[in-house]
Design a protein around this nucleic acid. Structure first.
Lengths: 113, 113
DNA sequence: CTAAAACCTGACACTGACGTCAAGGACAAG
DNA sequence: CTTGTCCTTGACGTCAGTGTCAGGTTTTAG
């Protein structure tokens, strides 16, 4: 598939897809004319990237952990620590969001009365 | 208290406090010489602002909803809708974070084996 | 009174994930 | 072959929250 098909399939803009490639998150083959071609699996990969980005992971963090999602063989102590610290960060963020949700929910409830 | 005391009490930088004021999130009295003075209640207010910012609310959104946190009398249909939509956004973000947490936790578990 | 510390405004810098525009090349359909 | 659509690279713009620096004023301690 070409880049237009991938944008249609994932909702990511062409700009974003090129950016992901620039950051090493997404690979592409090139046609003789230089145009990008993606395998079907790229759809899932882009979806995953979007999920992680939406969770506040930076592209460089995603760059670090993506390989160990797709190829399970890569296990280094450094990577394990990286994963754990990102997990901790995400859990912190979740509890922070819970606090905010409770604040907002309380307000909404007051309004409903 | 002066701005230095407030930074000490909240951890927010002086720059951030001035920014909050610029955005209408935080009020201050001025001394004859023009220096900011805050009431004790400013500590709680800044803490709240930081919580909401950390949850990804924009300063303009916080500007909208802050009055109805501190003064409960303000109830308009528009504001109620605003609150509900922000609540929905936060809850979406929480579930997105849960997905990411599950991904990371699964990886960490694989590594632990 | 004076020196030091704290504060002021204004402005520019930065980061990250894009949007957007320009100027041109690639490619399928007719 | 041509036309229209899709694609390319490169570069600059954006936004939000904050860092930081400059040059000047205020407040506090001694």
């Amino acid at each position: 598939m070409r880049i237009g098909d991938l944008t249609a399939a994932t909702g990511a803009s062409a700009r974003s897809l090129r950016y992901y490639e620039e950051q090493g998150l997404l690979a592409s083959e090139r046609s003789p004319g230089g145009q990008r071609h993606y395998p079907e699996s790229a759809v899932a990969r882009v979806t995953l990237i979007q999920t992680l980005l939406a969770a506040g992971l930076s592209s460089s963090t995603i760059y670090d952990i993506l390989p160990c999602i797709t190829e399970k063989a890569i296990r280094t102590p450094w990577l394990a620590g990286r994963l754990r610290s990102e997990l901790a960060r995400v859990e912190d963020q979740i509890s922070s969001l819970h606090r905010t949700r409770d604040i907002l929910a309380g307000l909404v409830e007051q309004y409903a009365v």
